[in-house]
Design a protein around this nucleic acid. Structure first.
Lengths: 348, 348
DNA sequence: GTGAAAGCGCTAACAT
DNA sequence: ATGTTAGCGCTTTCAC
């Protein structure tokens, strides 16, 4: 270790000016004369001075830190979201403090409170439950920083939100399946507790209803874990009146559905068609390329960032802003015409 | 906005003790009497006091912030790494500040310096180049926090590193291909500039050499971008003596190889076998399940964290610690026996 | 345009 | 076991 890092005081000393002036050179808060500026700059270079953001943040009450909380970083959807947010942060001279909540309410609250205790200026959250944020506010009173909820909790009062038109996306996907002649279409979902999931179920239900298929609606709820999801849909697939198509309501559900169908030796889309949710590279690498409802995740990130910056600048109006972005149905190879069911597992 | 948040001073006042005692209750730095402790705790609850980590960090010179820099968050390998690190952080009462460097040296330096200016206590980096860290140290002198390099730069002096036994992994993969009868095995890689990639190339070369196939070695360098990679290997695939197997040295290269092979209407593994690198869920969802060299990414995270914590506690010895974890060859469906080449694109 | 002085909220000496 | 004091490094009044 060399001697301790130079402070702005050292810079000021060496430049023969006051700390205030040195500070003003570093972060142009006030105009500084040609002469002084040059000397300060020189001193900075000579000393290798670097500002201490912590101290600046404490004094100015601006940490330039944004807290980000997602349920699970390795989920490609959330990973893409974080990626987009990081890009925005880098461009606006902010840093991201990232926590993972694991779809667990208690852990979520602890992690988000840790973020707040660190004086983050704003919060971007994919909550584990729709009411997570309201619950948090109840606990913390008005001491919450500006926040934007993404993907989930899109009806939460008192906070801006960004989500997708899930009902429309799900409707389009289900229509697609119906037009292919499917009449037994199962929806596979981790839970029914999230509004965005319920919107997907609604879209699915509406498409069925329009085709007079309401009686055949079946929503298979499999839980968060992929193995549980897979087990749940596998049971359904074992029935004599097994579905000829599965609409997976999340990307994890899609993976589970694929594995279940494979495990039973059924062909995609020959025996069972599959529509997934979300979209990323690996979905169109291996066969069959997955038909899916793509959410505009990059726009999620940029919209959430924009909303948050507006709140931080105080330029936002009182009302909560609700952004709903359209989904896009990507028809690829995992969906095909319905065929009469054969007995399953009748050999290779 | 309600009135400003209570400080530890307010707590002390209300509990009728000194700020020091209140502080000691909050973060058990020194023992506190039963009586005082109870009153402080009550004051904290009544006031809804929350400590300001920024101020604590400034004073104690311990930010409990760890900087993490990865080339690209949405790459599933890095996403898993970050996920693992976040788990460790949550368990040790640290927070992660995450930046993305985009495989770009200049951006990397800027982002990492931003991290340092925020007084992070330690740094976990997947550098964009093997010498990134040395270059950084040159610029910043000894003012660098303890750091651990993961995956890349594993020979950098003056810093602990965690990586995989890439040469052994690549050797095993290539042997596997050779045992299947392949003699024209192309290696596809984004670049040759990273030591871990070179180790993979070495392992590949050694296996070829042992089988007297050195003359047929071909390393196809395609660049960072997936389309470029794909174009590069597609060219190779167009040649009359096209490879019957491709060993993709990264997960992005694997994706590119698959797309290229598909685009030419070739069958995997019938016409071309493929071995990938890294391992994650989607690799064994769609067909054919990808044969791959799996790196122990969770162990990367836990080892890196452990090393960093040791440095932070001062318990580490002087010497750089080098951890090399074994890879595992996962033989699945994308590799099969070599078949004589037929003319390509001869119709459906 | 510049400087002096006063803290931001907290913890670490040094007392007792 | 507890209190008193003095800052951490910075920015911001308030003067000039």
């Amino acid at each position: 270790m060399s001697r301790k890092a130079p402070t702005i005081h050292d810079v000021a000393l060496r430049a023969g000016v006051s700390p205030a002036t040195a500070s003003n050179v570093v972060n142009g808060n006030r105009p500084v004369g040609e002469e002084s500026r040059a000397r300060v700059l020189r001193a900075i270079a000579e000393l290798g001075y670097r500002p201490n953001h912590l101290a600046a943040a404490l004094r100015a009450k601006r940490s330039r830190l944004i807290g980000v909380a997602v349920p699970e970083i390795s989920n490609p959807f959330f990973a893409s979201l974080v990626h987009g947010l990081e890009e925005q942060a880098a461009a606006s001279d902010y840093e991201l403090v990232l926590v993972s909540t694991g779809e667990d309410g208690a852990a979520e609250r602890r992690r988000i409170e840790a973020l707040i205790d660190r004086q983050i200026e704003g919060l971007i959250v994919v909550p584990s439950r729709d009411d997570s944020f309201s619950a948090l506010r109840e606990k913390r009173g008005r001491a919450l920083p500006p926040a934007v909820l993404v993907d989930r909790g899109c009806e939460s009062p008192g906070v801006d939100t960004v989500g997708a038109e899930c009902a429309a996306g799900a409707y389009a996907a289900t229509r697609h399946l119906i037009e292919l002649g499917h009449r037994d279409i199962a929806a596979l979902t981790p839970s029914r507790h999230l509004a965005n999931i319920r919107a997907r179920i609604d879209g699915y239900g509406r498409a069925l209803a329009e085709a007079d298929l309401s009686a055949r609606a079946r929503v298979c709820v499999g839980g968060q874990h992929i193995d549980a999801l897979r087990g749940a849909i596998e049971q359904d697939l074992h029935r004599a009146d097994r579905p000829t198509a599965i609409f997976a309501l999340t990307n994890v559900a899609a993976l589970a559905a694929i594995k279940a169908v494979r495990a039973l030796g059924l062909d995609i889309p020959g025996d069972v068609s599959i529509v997934g949710f979300d979209d990323f590279d690996w979905m169109c690498a291996l066969r069959p390329y997955l038909t899916t409802v793509a959410q505009p995740v990059d726009e999620f990130a940029s919209s959430a960032w924009r909303l948050l910056m507006q709140r931080l600048s105080g330029a936002a109006k009182e009302d909560d802003v609700r952004i709903e972005l359209p989904c896009a149905l990507k028809v690829r190879e995992s969906t095909g015409p319905a065929r009469p069911r054969l007995k399953i597992a009748a050999g290779a």
